[in-house]
Structure formats: C-alpha cells, structure tokens
C-alpha cells in the first residue's frame, strides 16, 4: 500500500514552517475530528444494535423452538431467567411444560475450542438426566471437529446425570464418554457444554426446592437431587473463570 502517504508531518522542513501554536492547533483539530468520528460511529452502532436486538431475539426463539420440539416434546416452552447463575456460555434456559407440570429443561449452550464456536441444545429431564444433545450450529472452520455431529457421540450423553469426563478409549465409568479420535478438543468442548447445562439445571432445581421449603410446602423428591449433584456446580465453574452477568449481551456472540 501507499507507504509515503501515511508518514506524519513531523519532518524537519515542516518544523521550520509551522510556528508552535499552529502545530498545536493542528493536533487539537486532528484529535477533535477523530473524537467526533468515534462518537458518531458509536451512536450509529448502538442505534442499529438496539433496533435489531428485539427482532433477533424473536427469530432465535423461533429457531430454538423447532430444535426443542425435536429433542424434548412438550406443549409449551417458557424462557426462564431465574434460579441460576448467568454465564457467557449459557445462552438461554427454557422450561418445557406439559400442561402445568414442568417436564424438563432445555439449555442452549455455546462452547468454544481454540477457534470454533459450537452452539448446543441440551435437553434435561426432571431428574437432572440428559435426555438428548443436539448441535444447533457450528462454525465454518470446524472441519476436523465436525465429527462431533456424529449421532453416536451425541447419543453417548443420554442418561448421564453427573459431571461428565471425556477420555480417550472406551469409557470405564458411568459418567465417562469416549472422545472422537482426531477431534479431541471439540469433543471435550461439547462435553464441557453439557456439563454447564447440567450444572444450570441442578441450580434451578436447588432454587425451586429452597423456595418451596421457605413457603412451607414439602417437596421431598426435588429436594433430594440438588444435594446429590451439588459438587457438579463447582466443577464447571472453575473451568470458566470469566465473571458472569453477560446475560443477554452474551447472546450477541
């Protein structure tokens, strides 16, 4: 590109030409222009962003509804915002209602290995057991990791209810799955996403139980699960040291 054109006018000739005050004026004018350009650009962007966000949310919800119907059929899905700690990874949590009863939860998670972004939908039932995992979207250069779409790999998550570890070779433990060879990082990222989803649902369950306890209603069944699954909540959180509260802004990613 043009190298000369971007040279700064601080050459010795110009130093002589400009008096000091004029030079200062010049710098102030330049900085001011830049400032105005930046302000205008920020205003424009935030305006467009504001305008688009509502639209986008509706569209995303409609797309997700289709996926959820496939993996956890229910009458109605309601988005929930309460009872769990929001992190950058959790894009949305839906409660699946059959009549007035909550049948299970669908958690939309976004995971990343070094360069790829994978969006997952994890269906979890009332006993905090994974019902199904589906890959909603995957970035272009996934190439080698695309095998994670492999149904065999995703089916392996079915019925898991605790912190899952992904290892090479055949699984020895109940909560262990084998990674896809050649796509270890991607498999591990997907497993991490499923773990996040399990953690969120057990948090919600714990929250519901504690609310019910406070109001004096007995909820013996739901009370049991969160205490059992308590350690999982800690484990995934240590892997994602970023502070949460991105909330809806996180869905912009």
């Amino acid at each position: 590109m043009n190298k000369k054109r971007f040279s700064f006018k601080f050459d010795s000739d110009e130093k002589i030409k400009f008096s000091l005050s004029e030079k200062k004026k010049n710098i102030i004018y330049s900085v001011l222009t830049l400032f105005i350009v930046a302000i205008v650009s920020a205003a424009l962007l935030s305006g467009v962003n504001e305008l688009m966000q509502a639209d986008e949310r509706n569209k995303n919800d409609a797309d997700m509804l289709e996926v959820m119907k496939r993996i956890l059929s229910a009458d109605e899905y309601r988005k929930t915002e309460n009872g769990f700690e929001k992190t950058k990874e959790i894009l949305a949590v839906y409660e699946a209602y059959e009549g007035e009863e909550i049948k299970g939860y669908c958690v939309q998670v976004e995971v990343k290995d070094y360069t790829d972004t994978i969006t997952l939908m994890v269906a979890i039932d009332n006993e905090v057991k994974v019902q199904a995992v589906e890959i909603v979207a995957m970035s272009e250069n996934a190439g080698k990791g695309i095998k994670a779409k492999d149904p065999q790999f995703l089916d392996a998550f079915k019925g898991k209810d605790n912190y899952i570890t992904a290892n090479k070779g055949t699984p020895k433990d109940k909560n262990q799955i084998s990674v896809i060879s050649g796509a270890t990082t991607t498999s591990k990222a997907v497993t991490e996403g499923v773990n996040d989803a399990i953690a969120v649902v057990s948090q919600i369950k714990a929250d519901v139980a504690s609310v019910e306890k406070e109001t004096g209603e007995d909820a013996p069944e739901t009370n049991e699960i969160p205490t059992e699954t308590a350690p999982q909540e800690v484990a995934p959180e240590t892997q994602t040291p970023t502070e949460g509260n991105v909330g809806e802004g996180g869905s912009a990613q």
Binding site: D63, T117, S139, E140
Partner: peptide, 14 residues
C-alpha cells in the same frame, strides 16, 4: 444485520 437476518451464516462465518 447478518446476525439478525441470517443467523445460521453468522454462526458459520464466526
């Protein structure tokens, strides 16, 4: 705009 109107491509192009 791409994120709003073509969300699948937005995820693809990252």
């Amino acid at each position: 705009m791409i994120r709003a109107y073509l969300p699948t491509h937005y995820v693809n192009l990252g």
